[in-house]
Amino acid sequence: MAAAAAAGAGPEMVRGQVFDVGPRYTNLSYIGEGAYGMVCSAYDNVNKVRVAIKKISPFEHQTYCQRTLREIKILLRFRHENIIGINDIIRAPTIEQMKDVYIVQDLMETDLYKLLKTQHLSNDHICYFLYQILRGLKYIHSANVLHRDLKPSNLLLNTTCDLKICDFGLARVADPDHDHTGFLTEYVATRWYRAPEIMLNSKGYTKSIDIWSVGCILAEMLSNRPIFPGKHYLDQLNHILGILGSPSQEDLNCIINLKARNYLLSLPHKNKVPWNRLFPNADSKALDLLDKMLTFNPHKRIEVEQALAHPYLEQYYDPSDEPIAEAPFKFDMELDDLPKEKLKELIFEETARFQPGYRS
């Protein structure tokens, strides 16, 4: 834990890192770190609560700039109880001085990944967590956004079992017609939660990839272990087919990539493993919904509104309290091709509203 900075004593240090967030945020305490930044909790002297502050230093890398800009653009436009918001952003007053960006968010005690390492969940908890994931996802999908990296560590939890989806750095506007060349190379989302079509096709992607990830998360809540822990690309596919069985001819016809289709045709026939054999203690309604989410063919996979209306979630289902976005989200430009200098300018502009004396 960093010592509390005395008023006016300059930035606090946390594990050798400068955290320049005073005077409003003090009493910093280390939480963890990701690929390009550290997260601390801090005391907000204005709202009198502890908050989470993520320090991001992305400006050396085009990919990190892209992810940072995506996350900020999306989260500043989203407003939903099951999606983490941005409360404040701290950065230098000029673009030349801006080396880091500090993002202030609600402090959540833990995440689903940490929880599943230590606790076996009751059916009631599984049901409530799944409902909140789908409630947040309904809003995301209504904005025409794909999260693309749903996994237990991106689901934040607090002691009252509130759940918030975080990390929109890989999110995209849904565009089933656009052929994202190089899709697989830039697709760094965790393999275990990846839909089979991501490994088999490169053309376009749809909201059904997020539903697949939610199915993987439900299976993990039922058993405290990942359902498809593939060691590499082909191993991942083999794990999936080992449980779902061989795809039907109709399902194979959806695979545009001939090499991928021929690979699947070359494999020995596998039978589907019954879900109640894998999860003998699970609620039968939970397994019915799991089956509809972990469907090989993305066109037959359940959609988020149908999933919310499934009998497993009937005690929570309330369409009048499951809000959607006001308007579909649009990125003005494809960020993939922009140089990091341009992305830095866009991050600077996007964060201006939090600067003292800002006038829109």
Results as ranks from 00 to 15, higher is better:
A5Q: 11
A7L: 10
A9N: 01
E12Y: 05
V14M: 09
G16K: 05
Q17H: 15
F19H: 12
D20H: 12
P23A: 11
R24K: 00
Y25N: 14
T26L: 08
N27D: 04
A35S: 15
C40I: 10
S41L: 10
Y43V: 13
Y43T: 13
D44C: 13
K48Y: 10
V49W: 10
A52E: 05
K54L: 04
T68M: 05
K73G: 05
K73L: 11
L75F: 04
L76P: 09
L76V: 00
L76K: 07
L76R: 00
F78N: 12
R79N: 05
N82P: 04
N82F: 09
I83T: 04
I84V: 06
D88L: 06
D88G: 00
I90F: 14
R91A: 01
P93G: 01
E96G: 00
M98H: 11
K99L: 05
V104Q: 10
V104K: 02
L107V: 10
T110S: 15
D111Y: 14
D111I: 00
D111Q: 03
Y113W: 03
K114W: 10
L116R: 09
K117G: 08
L121S: 04
N123I: 14
N123V: 03
I126P: 08
Y128G: 05
Y128Q: 03
F129V: 01
F129G: 06
L137G: 05
K138I: 14
S142N: 04
V145M: 12
L146H: 04
H147E: 04
L150C: 03
C161I: 04
D162S: 02
D162T: 06
I165K: 11
I165C: 05
C166K: 08
D167G: 00
D167R: 00
G169K: 04
L170N: 06
A171G: 06
A171F: 03
A174E: 11
D175N: 12
P176C: 08
D177T: 07
T181M: 10
L184P: 08
L184D: 12
T185R: 09
V188C: 11
T190N: 12
R191D: 11
R191E: 05
Y193Q: 09
E197I: 06
K203R: 11
K203D: 10
K203W: 07
Y205F: 14
Y205I: 07
T206N: 13
K207F: 06
S208Q: 07
I209G: 10
I209T: 00
V214T: 11
I217H: 11
A219V: 12
M221G: 06
L222E: 09
S223I: 10
N224M: 10
I227G: 00
H232R: 01
Q236E: 08
N238F: 11
N238E: 07
L241G: 10
L241S: 06
L244W: 08
G245R: 10
S246N: 12
Q249V: 07
L252V: 08
N253Q: 05
N253I: 15
I256Q: 00
L258V: 09
K259W: 02
K259L: 09
R261A: 05
N262A: 04
Y263M: 03
L264M: 15
L267M: 15
P268Q: 10
K270I: 05
N271E: 06
V273S: 10
P274V: 07
R277G: 01
F279Y: 14
F279T: 00
N281M: 05
S284N: 11
K285M: 10
L287D: 05
L290T: 02
D291E: 12
M293G: 04
M293K: 14
T295D: 01
F296C: 06
N297I: 15
N297Q: 10
R301Q: 04
V304A: 12
V304Q: 07
A309Y: 06
Y312A: 02
L313A: 07
E314V: 13
Q315H: 12
Q315T: 02
Y316V: 08
P319K: 09
P319V: 07
P319R: 12
E322D: 13
E322I: 00
P323I: 01
P323E: 02
I324S: 12
A327S: 13
P328L: 12
F329A: 05
F329P: 00
D332M: 02
M333S: 11
E334L: 09
L335S: 11
D336K: 11
L338D: 02
L343Y: 04
I347H: 11
I347E: 10
F348A: 08
E349Q: 01
E349R: 12
E349V: 13
R353K: 13
Q355I: 05
P356G: 06
P356Y: 01
P356V: 00
R359E: 09
R359T: 11
